[in-house]
């Protein structure tokens, strides 16, 4: 720790300063002392380590507590495999649906002017702020046996809640805004000039979209899909309400984690959890790479 007096400018950080020339007057203090900096950095690192990194480490530590063999054995259970398959299936349906929606919504909102636009944007954001439990509940109220469409569904032998369609619906609901929110700010920033140029040069609307808009937004799109996918595979609350928890049929990975945890099978619970944590890490890694390399090509104002 240095005990530099506060009045002295701190070299080596902040803006690239000119070489120290004879100082007549101390430069304005626009930086903290080294000690302050060290304390601030230390606090931030400690805070993140305690609240974020430690839980992540705990997942892997518990998963490998009884060795790699035990860890791998956890995945031999057919119910676990079924849960993994179901989670992949649900994500494979939910993510493309929200992708198509996100592109359409972004195109309409970012490239055109119409009244009620901010209301529409707010409504798209709504699923973010709704409690996952409420997201699940609404589908039970609609499609449950006692719900509005319950009688009709039963008469036609269709099952939605406590079956895969209900899980898909709940997942689509909670991941609804992800792609749209990545695209809208970016496409607004980019404006419509390039598309108009393409159209003037004779390109068709679809071609314009594919050759102009899509390349301009591909990284934001990828980023949105990544987040959407991570959330789709990891959703717990909403899916828990509509799932029915039948192993091998309606059990997704996060629900299976809970079940294994409740069966004293902690190694297996954390093993499945470690897959989900691995997915989260891959998502973060991809996101970081995208941001470092294509920072400009991502929407600047993004709030999840």
């Amino acid at each position: 720790m240095s005990d530099q007096p506060a009045a002295l400018p701190d070299e080596g950080s902040g803006r690239p300063a000119a070489r120290p020339t004879p100082v007549i007057r101390p430069r304005p203090t626009v930086d903290e002392t080294r000690a302050t900096k060290a304390i601030l950095i230390g606090t931030a690192v400690a805070f993140l380590a305690l609240f974020v990194v430690l839980p992540l480490i705990a997942v892997f530590a518990e998963a490998f507590r009884r060795g790699v063999d035990h860890y791998l054995e956890s995945f031999a259970d057919p119910d676990t495999q079924a849960a993994i398959r179901l989670t992949l299936t649900v994500a494979a349906i939910a993510v493309p649906l929200n992708l198509v929606f996100g592109i359409c919504a972004a195109w309409a909102i970012a490239k055109f002017e119409f009244p009620g636009k901010s209301l529409l944007t707010t409504l798209i954001d709504l699923p973010f702020s709704v409690s996952p439990v409420v997201s699940g509940l609404v589908f039970v109220l609609l499609f449950g046996a006692q719900g509005y469409f319950g009688k009709w569904l039963a008469a036609h032998d269709l099952q939605i809640v406590f079956a895969v369609p209900g899980i898909v619906l709940a997942t689509v609901f909670v991941t609804f805004p992800f792609v749209a929110r990545e695209l809208i700010p970016l496409m607004q920033e980019q404006g419509t000039a390039e598309e108009e140029a393409a159209l003037t040069l004779g390109a068709s609307g679809l071609r314009t979209f594919l050759t102009v808009t899509l390349p301009n937004t591909k990284w934001a799109l990828l980023y949105g899909v990544l987040l959407c996918n991570a959330r789709a595979m990891g959703e717990f609350g909403a899916v828990s309400v509509v799932s029915g928890h039948v192993r091998g049929l309606t059990n997704t990975m996060p629900l299976h984690v809970e079940i294994l945890y409740n069966e004293y099978n902690f190694v297996a619970a954390f093993a499945v959890a470690s897959l989900l944590a691995g997915l989260a890490l891959v998502t973060l890694l991809a996101k970081s790479v995208l941001e470092w390399r294509y920072g400009d090509a991502l929407g600047r104002t993004r709030l999840y």
Partner: peptide
């Protein structure tokens, strides 16, 4: 500030968003 590991720290901030809540739950309980 510039310090070693800054980018890692930056990436780590998003973890609570990417980590499924059930996973976070059992990890925190543990």
């Amino acid at each position: 500030y510039e310090f070693p590991g800054r980018r890692l720290l930056d990436a780590v901030v998003d973890l609570p968003f990417a980590l499924p809540t059930a996973v976070a739950g059992i990890a925190l309980a543990a």
